[in-house]
Amino acid sequence: MPVYDRGYTHWEPSGGRAYPAWLVIAKRGISEPLKKRWLLMLTLAAWVPAIVKAVMIYVKLKAGDIADLLVGNWTSIDATGFLSFMEGQRFFVFVLLAIVGAGLISTDRRDNGLSLYFSRPLGLASYIGGKALVIMFFYAMVTLFPAYGLCLYAYSIAPDAVGSDLLFLIPLRATFYWLLSGASISLVLLAFSSLGKRSIFVMVWWTIMVMGTETIGTIGKNLLNSDAFEALNFLGNYHNAASGLFSSEARLDVSPWLSLVVLLVWTAAAVFILRKQIRPVEVVS
């Protein structure tokens, strides 16, 4: 019987595979933004630095150390070079995550979507996990995936020159870094998103968090000669804390351990806010 001829029928399960709720939320959260062409273009634009670096690597591998004199760290294809690359992507991280992440919870709060979600068989962890995966995916799109691409590219053009580190250890470190920093960044951004019902409000707070804290760190260091302000630098702390992982020197003038502690505090605060804010029922005290 054609669909348009049917009244209400009871569902007869086909026996197909049902996905867990967090995966359903993540799938939808990833596919919806990618339908917007301009966002897809922005995501692809984030690959331009990787393409430039690929060209530099080619030059270095073909022209040797002379290339270093011309382009410095850009041609580095060791762990430090990849940390520098991911650090260099922070503008795209900031912009893309603001666009994708700001509305993830605020829109649900605005449209009473939380009530719908929590009328389904899913819990808080599934909801937050699914939303966090969306942010982590786009974070990977501008950091991890280009890094993978570069590793493969460098290895493919000169396997003897770069060694097997590029195939195993560096991608492993990059994945580990993405996993931890991505989870933390996602939770912080989601916490901001849960605080308001308008995406623009969330974007303002995200801008203050990323650009504001970096500016404060720079001003504190240059005008007040105090390195302690650098511990406020939100994204900078991730790179600083990861310097040990990538066998690199500290990226800020504060200890990587201090950066790690600061980030743990931010993440814990984000989890606290999310637990408090995300409820199916708006409670007016």
Partner: peptide
């Protein structure tokens, strides 16, 4: 069926309903 809100913007009607079905544990095709 909530009284207020309860829709997910930027999605077509059929996408919203299918999405809710999947969240209820249905296979995507069903």
């Amino acid at each position: 069926m909530p009284e207020t809100g309860g829709i997910i913007p930027d999605m077509s009607g059929v996408a919203v309903v299918a999405y809710m079905g999947e969240l209820s544990g249905m296979p995507a095709r069903d």
